[in-house]
Simulated scan of single mutants.
Amino acid sequence: MREHLVTIIIPVYNAEKRLEHAIQSVLKQSYKNIELVLVNDGSTDNSLYICHKYAKLDSRIKVISQNNSGVSSARNRGLKESAGEFVMFLDSDDTIDSETISELLPHLYNDESDIAIFGMSFDYYKGDNFKYNRELSFKKNLSISSNEIKKHFFQMYDANYLSSACNKLFNSRIIKENKITFEENMAILEDFKFVLDFMENTKKITVTSNVYYHYYNDISYGKLGRRPDIDYMRNFKILDYKLRQFAEKIDLKDEYSCGKINGMIFRYYITAIEKSFIEDKKYKYKYEQLKQIMLDNDLNYAIKKANPSNIKLKILRYLFKAKSTKTLSFIFWINSIRKNKGV
């Protein structure tokens, strides 16, 4: 049996603390016909040195450097430079199990699937000390055609099988033929859009309940607030349009599905508003900003059609429909205070 080349792409930016763990997890794969593409995205620490150190030790490693342009740009550069028939993405502080490729690859060439999706373990550390983990995985194994995706879409979404690009093995032919790239105008949820773009062009997908990917979280730093470089509303609008387009493509048009899709979108817009209230600006400015957001047509369409999944969102939806700007502003303000205090 011919061994298929698998490319693993790691975008690298100031990752010296955990980068070696990520690289070693790739080099320890029991499946050996791999290509590791390390894309140094303008690191200012020792990351590039670490990349070159490992490239000297293993000829399967390719190191690329570019000016700092963001994770989407780095991944896109990795895709351009990749030679593999199949491709995976790994973040520079995460790891994969040694049997990941060996066990996933047969699904793509034996089952003729275009993508294999698997579970993730969210591993929480305090410094170098492992504390606990939380696994998210699908309850059963599936091999389904593109026409059947709609039957499992929401369960896959809830199990984190759609929103990350890292818990997947992709057929690179689909990516190249359809010119699929990461949206460089997005700085959050760009993975989700990439996955939806890919799945629009699939004929068959495999879903496995096995957990192979380990997502690193350092709880020493507590919860992160708003990233000032991100326009959350603009990012979520891009995803809004993509989600609606994808739902149309896979025929998620019934009333229940419409309510669920708009509920997801509504939650994203709420997140954008919450992030805006974490900004270090006066309450009056935040209040006026909320008044403007409440006029947004896309948000109001989501509010009208949404069937929220929890009581908090149901209450917020009611207040938005009632145009209760003062009450909403007070709720978001109190919530931002609690988050800034780490409550």
Rank of each mutant, 00 (worst) to 15 (best):
R2L: 07
L5A: 02
V6R: 01
I9P: 01
I9D: 00
P11C: 04
E16A: 15
R18A: 02
Q24F: 11
S30V: 03
N33Q: 09
N33Y: 08
V37A: 03
G42D: 04
T44S: 13
D45R: 08
I50Y: 04
H52P: 08
K56D: 15
D58P: 03
I61D: 06
I64G: 05
N67E: 13
N67C: 08
S73P: 02
S73I: 08
L79R: 02
K80L: 10
K80T: 08
S82M: 03
E85Q: 12
F89N: 02
L90T: 01
D91I: 03
T95S: 10
T95I: 08
S98P: 01
T100G: 02
T100Q: 00
H107R: 03
L108V: 00
D111C: 04
E112L: 11
A116Y: 01
I117K: 06
G119K: 09
M120C: 07
Y125D: 05
K126E: 15
F130E: 06
Y132T: 11
E135V: 14
K140Q: 15
F153P: 12
Y157C: 01
N160T: 10
L162Q: 02
S163E: 12
A165P: 01
K168V: 03
L169Y: 00
S172F: 12
I180Y: 02
T181G: 00
E183A: 13
E184F: 03
I188Q: 15
I188M: 08
L196V: 03
D197R: 09
F198G: 04
M199R: 06
M199F: 06
E200I: 01
E200V: 01
N201A: 06
T208D: 04
T208E: 02
Y213I: 05
Y213F: 09
H214I: 05
Y215I: 12
Y215D: 02
Y216A: 07
D218V: 05
G222S: 07
K223W: 03
L224V: 07
R226N: 15
R226Y: 13
R226G: 06
P228Y: 04
Y232N: 05
R234S: 01
L239P: 14
Y241K: 15
L243R: 01
R244E: 13
R244A: 00
A247C: 10
A247M: 11
D251Q: 13
L252N: 09
D254G: 07
E255A: 11
S257K: 05
G259C: 09
K260G: 00
N262H: 15
M264G: 05
R267H: 12
I270E: 04
K275C: 14
S276N: 03
S276F: 00
E279S: 14
E279M: 13
K281Y: 06
K281D: 15
K284I: 14
K291T: 11
I293L: 12
D296S: 08
N307H: 12
K312V: 14
I315A: 08
R317K: 15
R317Q: 14
Y318G: 10
Y318E: 14
K321D: 11
K326W: 03
F330N: 11
W333V: 04
N335L: 11
I337E: 05
K339A: 03
N340K: 15
G342Q: 12
V343Q: 04
V343M: 13
